[in-house]
Each structure stands twice: as C-alpha cells, then as structure tokens.
Write a protein that binds this DNA or RNA. Structure first.
Lengths: 135, 135
DNA sequence: CTCCTTAATAGTAACTGTTGCTGAAAAGAG
DNA sequence: CTCTTTTCAGCAACAGTTACTATTAAGGAG
C-alpha cells in the first residue's frame, strides 16, 4: 500500500493533463484551487514532484524562471520565448543522436532540449518596447 | 560610457573562464571571494547576468537546482547526473536539426540540450544507497 | 593631473519558489 | 468497523536571487 489515490493527487494530475501550455507549479496551484479551494500549496508541490519522479509528468527547467510541468512524460523538445516567457512544444527535423560510445561510462536516461528565441507573437514586436506579459 | 571595466566584473568573468566545471553562482562567488574578500554576492549575480545577457558566458538551466554558468557562450550539450548533481559537457553524434519551416513564425536564437542520467562515477554505485555529495 | 558625472559597488532587506515540520484527516487492508 | 500509515492543511523556514540606498570609483572633459 505504498501509493494512495487521493482527491488532491488526482486533481493535480488532471490539471496538468488539461493544460495544453506548460504551466508552472504556481499556475497549477491556481487551477487546482478552483476545484478544491482548500488545497495547500505544499500538497501541489509534493504531488507534482512525485508525479515527475514516477514519470507520469515531465519537468522542464527554465533558466531564471520557475520550473514548468508538461503532461507528456516522454522527453521532447520545448521552445522558450525570451521575450514573453512562454514555453511551447517545438518540432525537430531530426532528434539529437546520442552515441553512448562517445561518452563511455555515462548512463543516459533521457534528455531535454530547449530552443531559445522569439515566439510568433513576439517576433514582430518592437524589441526595444516593453515585453508583453503572460497572463 | 555605458559599460565600465571594474575589477569585480573582471574577476567574475575570469573565475568563470578558469573553472572547467559548470559552477553555480554561489560557487563562483566563493571563488571570487578568495581574490576579492569584500565582494558582494549581489555584485556576482549582477555581473553573471550581464555577462550572460551580453553573450560572453552561457547560462545552463537545471531542474530543481540553481542555474549554472559556462565559459563557452555558444550553445552546446550538457550532461546532468541525477545522482550527484554534477554537470559536465557531453559529446553528440549529431546535433539536433532545427528546421525553421516546421515552426513558422518562430525566431530561433540558440538552444540548450541537457542529457539526464548517471555519470561514470555514480553509475556503478548502489542506487539504493545515499547519493554521493558534491564538494 | 584634477574634477565631475554617472555606472557600479557593498551591505542589507525583501522577495519568490520550494521544502520541512506538526498535528489532523482519510485511504485502504484486514 | 478499526487500525495503520500515507497524505493532508497550515505554517514556518529555507535557498536562490533581486531590489534598494548610500557610497565608491571609472573614465571622459578640461
């Protein structure tokens, strides 16, 4: 009886699955709060970490910003807009090729690729103007 | 006269250049402290961010851990040991291929690839034992 | 070289994202 | 239903980073 199915755990997982963007822990907390007004922030963080550790969701590290979470557990490619901070999926022509022989002794489990640039909405902006803010 | 060459700025940059590993801001602060005992932590952070913004050094985002900095400003591939937290360079057989046509409207500036796994030192450890600690 | 303007600094407080702690609640086995 | 143990809410604490303010010093003008 190691893992219990609590309402809170289910709500956190459902919230991540329902959000097509790549929400931060705080955004997930806000979303879950709508359906379970009494939930604690610690509970959301604890469940997100457990779900990520167990491979059910994926954690995306972003420089100078809080981590984000993603409903797909398999490693893939993300795009980070340096202007508005939005994170979204990105298609690659070819995945990076990881050759174990080039790095002997290393055990590779998965990888994460983050492309930095400007999203289609921000690319046309006057870059000297103030960046648009995420809601 | 927008950018001044201060001793502190030079020391911070030199410290990053001298460290072959991928130090955190805190490790760089400790290193600079040896040569300039009065330097403020805020100064180190400010200079690291400026150097990264200006493209002289590179910032590496790590999930659930402080950001790390790297002397090479060009995008490349890092390995993160999930056990000891060490970050090091990693060789790729082929770089990922980014096709602008697949993601219309997006402006790609650079990318960052993080491989997760176990480093050669940790790969042989009993994974149920306590992880080795970085110095 | 000396003065002056202004960027950069030291020191500290504040802030944000996250985790740890404690007593209470509840999931699930028997 | 009862008991055990995980998980919870609420809160305090923590780590990493940034903001603020008075002070210092870089570097151009004279």
């Amino acid at each position: 009886m190691s893992r219990r199915n609590t309402i809170q755990r289910t709500l956190v997982k459902n919230a991540v699955m329902a959000m097509s963007c790549h929400p931060t822990a705080d955004e997930i907390y806000d979303e879950v709060l709508k359906k379970c007004p009494g939930i604690s922030k610690g509970t959301v963080y604890r469940n997100l970490n457990r779900l990520a550790d167990e491979g059910e969701i994926f954690r995306v590290a972003v420089a100078n910003a809080p981590d984000r979470f993603d409903r797909t557990a398999c490693p893939h490619c993300h795009f980070l807009c340096l202007r508005c901070g939005q994170v979204c999926d990105f298609k690659l022509a070819h995945d990076p090729e990881i050759d174990p022989a080039l790095n002997p002794g290393f055990v590779v489990l998965d990888y994460e690729l983050v492309i930095n640039g400007y999203c289609s909405e921000c690319a046309g902006d006057d870059l000297s103007a103030a960046p648009r803010q995420l809601s």
